[in-house]
Design a protein around this nucleic acid. Structure first.
Lengths: 315, 315
DNA sequence: TTTTTATATAGATAAAAGTCTATATATTGA
DNA sequence: TCAATATATAGACTTTTATCTATATAAAAA
């Protein structure tokens, strides 16, 4: 099969002309509708009938009487032209931000604040469909390499991929302990103290872990690693139940997430890291993506900061 | 509006090629599917994107990542190409008698036997849709002039229209009276006798009336016209209830339609007329129409004659 | 780094689409 | 029968489509 479908049904223009003839009831009427000369229409219809290889109508006196083939073709022509009109509408919606998809992939820790950023954007552009993928760092990196999404959110940026980035928000890492822990009473805790307590840590590859390790190396502190846990929520619950202390993004405590936990007043903390919005270098941002980027850098950032301040986190 | 839709969405071939790219996931894959060179596909897609005036995809590494516009276009392309495939099927059905419409317009009197002719044809070609229009003579003539149907059935052919015709079946006109009428006892009734009885006649323009008038003029008989009635069935019931006698097509009595009525044995009757199948001269008969014509002239005629013989009508 | 695998661009070309003007033909209605 | 109304055909022309070959460019894999 050579798959040359179009050869059997004529051109789109011919369908358009035929439909005008069908609806106008005559060649001349169609030619006037389309601002063409009568022979032009006559010709195109003749060609169309030749490619179809069946007569489309018969001329009885002054009237055109359409054959079964003519009726069938008219039906198809209507369907097809309507499909095109629908497409045009869709495309102009896409051009005008009245449709389309914004795809974002984020590492798990950022799931605590990202929805608070997307909410107002959604409200502003209700017709835009947002697809948010929450995955672990490696999965987000894979999606980044494959160019699957518009934006990616990291705390610790991957190094071997060429990207564009913007530093978006401070991501302070704070030490937490259960409410009844002896250290919670103290107003100023020395960093060295932390070595004594059993420490709960995120898994290797985690951005949080990377930042903690860098920080401790710098301050020449050896942690007393008790357990590796792959989830912030699980770590919080482990801390609550007295298994140890930990250092986590302050955002994991925001928006009602600090029940039963106390932030320790350790002197050089918090560890100052940042959240980054990243996208593949060279990838042409869609209009929607651009719009989102502008939003993030202006209102989005402001809104989020003020929300976090209300939560009394030292962001 | 210049109504040049096609200018905005490319050619059918381009849609076809784009769909191959979309489904194959790469330009090269598409070119192999379609037996084209890679630059050909690349070019056509580029043109398509230019007419749409939006990028359809982005190349990320070795993969193509489609934009929203690309996805929308692919959906439309699928719809459109499927419409064409459906059309092709329909057309080839039409070519092969596996679809299509046979349109016939008949004068009211012939409605008594025409269905018995169409029945077996329908069974033989179950996919063919038959549209039977039963109307008065003038309406059938109007449809004939406008070329609205494939065939027309008359007893008395119109004179001022150029047509092709075939004489199909005898249409004997017989005299009828109610069962209790004094004449029903007689075995041989003189034609003149008819002048005495009140006579019920079809309306002017009716083929039956035309034939009766011609016949009576020839035999120099003056009828005692009592009433003009526009329907065979109404005439039969008027005769039954003793309003008078009449002359009607024997076929109106066939297939169980003679209850309460008796055919009078008037000597030079029945009046011998015929049923004709007619169609516009110069109108190209469709394959279906041709098939029907052949059927009518062979099996159709035979079947109908033998059915009528069983009804003991002297056809 | 080189090879392999993809896509894009340039330049050429045959065929088809799409349009026109001028003219012929057919039908209807006065 | 003639004027009015329709459709069809002929011939010409421009633009676009749909291809190709050859070559450049880019990324991934070895």
């Amino acid at each position: 099969m050579t798959s040359r479908l179009h050869a059997h049904i004529g051109t789109i223009r011919q369908l358009e002309i035929f439909l005008a003839v069908y609806e106008g009831g005559s060649i001349t009427a169609a030619s006037e509708m389309l601002y063409l000369t009568q022979p032009t229409v006559s010709m195109q219809i003749k060609k169309l009938a030749e490619t179809i290889d069946m007569p489309l109508y018969e001329q009885i006196g002054r009237k055109l009487v359409f054959t079964d083939a003519g009726h069938a073709l008219a039906t198809t022509a209507k369907d097809v032209l309507n499909s095109f009109i629908d497409l045009e509408t869709k495309l102009s919606d896409l051009r005008g931000l009245k449709a389309g998809t914004l795809k974002i992939a984020v590492v798990t820790t950022s799931q605590y604040f990202i929805p608070h950023l997307l909410g107002p954007f959604c409200e502003r552009y209700p017709a835009i469909d947002i697809q948010l993928k929450v995955a672990n760092r490696q999965q987000v990196i894979d999606r980044l390499s494959a160019g699957m999404d518009d934006f990616y959110v990291f705390s610790h940026l991957p190094e071997d991929i060429e990207m564009e980035t913007i530093e978006f928000l401070p991501n302070p890492l704070v030490a937490i302990a259960p409410q009844n822990h002896p250290l919670t009473a103290k107003k100023r805790i020395h960093l060295e103290t932390i070595s004594d307590a059993p420490f709960l840590m995120r898994e290797k590859g985690s951005g949080t872990r990377f930042a903690i390790e860098e920080f401790m190396k710098e301050h020449q502190i050896q942690l007393n690693l008790k357990m590796t846990i792959e989830s912030n929520e699980a770590i919080k619950h482990a801390v609550m139940s007295g298994l140890g202390i930990s250092i986590l993004s302050a955002h994991t405590l925001a928006f009602g997430g600090r029940a039963g936990l106390v932030e320790l007043a350790i002197k050089p903390l918090p560890i100052k890291t940042h959240w980054y919005f990243a996208w593949l270098k060279g990838k042409q941002l869609s209009i929607i993506a651009n719009t989102f980027l502008n939003y993030v850098q202006s209102e989005g950032k402001e809104t989020l900061l003020s929300e976090l301040r209300q939560e009394q986190l030292d962001v």
